[in-house]
């Protein structure tokens, strides 16, 4: 993607070129590289910040302990379940919404603008918003559901339901994201394809499955993977809505690391979790980048 532009540069230009990159390097050194290296080192030590003791080298013990830690396994399970459910829902509904908005009239354009709102407001704000609406006694949702005869539900306090509520709020926020990206891909389909299919008398549903889906597939796959990776970064919504509870029903990896490292100050242990986490995420991301460059070549 980087087209090289060659013209003879003088010495000063070469020096300035490097100087121009310097601030970025400095920032990333402070905010990413040093912490990452430091965290890697700490992950081999038993070290609690609140106790007046020096770090004790324990080798791989933190990593081994992780797999014996039921809470960690629970968070991992919750996070995977959350990722799979939310991505599936967001992709399916996102595609449908994108299809429905694919014409060029002004209603669709206005609706598209409104759809943008959930995905750009602070996740903390949308968490707060839904927490208010989903309250068991004073919330509007249970009130509206009472009209169709449904009993009041404890959306966030019932350990069997809470994770689905989180999935719902996540879907509310990110269906628009999927829809907008798929929509721009649908709009790039050459009109001649659609016209030809129409002249041949193909049903709209057939046009969808035979033309639209195959052409937009690369974009859909990329969006699904972006959402899948992002699902392992979920923090704000959970922090505001459930704090990982009730019990540990909505504890996920980021909230788990936060609790161990920042609340309980188990620096070594939580660093080990973080390192393991980023290793797995990098493997996924690496596969993703490979797949993506392949898909993008297909898109052209």
């Amino acid at each position: 993607m980087l087209i090289s532009r060659s013209i003879s540069h003088d010495r000063a230009d070469k020096i300035y070129s490097w100087l121009f990159l310097l601030p970025v390097f400095v920032i990333l050194l402070i905010a990413a590289f040093i912490p990452l290296g430091y965290g890697f080192g700490l992950s081999f030590f038993k070290y609690k910040l609140n106790l007046q003791q020096s770090p004790l080298f324990v080798g791989l013990e933190n990593y081994i302990d992780l797999f014996r830690d039921e809470l960690f396994m629970q968070s991992l399970k919750n996070n995977i379940a959350f990722a799979l459910m939310s991505v599936a829902i967001e992709i399916v509904i996102g595609i449908i919404i994108a299809m429905l908005l694919s014409d060029d009239n002004s209603f669709s354009r206005i609706a598209t603008t409104f759809l943008l709102i959930p995905m750009i407001i602070a996740p903390v704000a949308s968490g707060t918003l839904w927490k208010m609406m989903l309250d068991r006694t004073y919330g509007i949702v249970n009130y509206l559901l009472s009209f169709v005869g449904l009993p009041a539900v404890s959306w966030l306090a019932d350990f069997r339901i809470a994770i689905y509520t989180i999935v719902f709020v996540d879907a509310w926020q990110f269906i628009p994201f999927v829809a907008i990206l798929v929509l721009s891909s649908i709009k790039s389909i050459p009109k001649s394809f659609l016209d030809a299919a129409r002249v041949d008398g193909a049903s709209p549903l057939k046009v969808f499955t035979r033309i639209v889906l195959p052409i937009t597939a690369p974009v859909i796959i990329i969006v699904a993977m972006v959402r899948f990776i992002d699902a392992f970064k979920v923090f704000d919504t959970i922090f505001v809505m459930t704090q990982g509870g009730p019990g540990n029903a909505t504890e996920m990896l980021p909230t788990y690391i936060y609790r161990q490292g920042i609340k309980f100050l188990k620096v070594g242990y939580s660093s080990a979790t973080a390192i393991l986490f980023i290793t797995v995420m990098s493997l996924i991301a690496w596969q993703f980048i490979r797949l993506r460059s392949k898909q993008l070549r297909r898109v052209g």
Partner: peptide, 24 residues
């Protein structure tokens, strides 16, 4: 190298450096 590295940086979860950053 830099362009692909920026891509990776964009994807990794911010939480993984939280504890060391807090300490630093």
């Amino acid at each position: 190298v830099l362009a692909s590295w920026f891509l990776v940086q964009k994807m990794y979860p911010a939480i993984v450096v939280a504890v060391p950053v807090f300490y630093i």
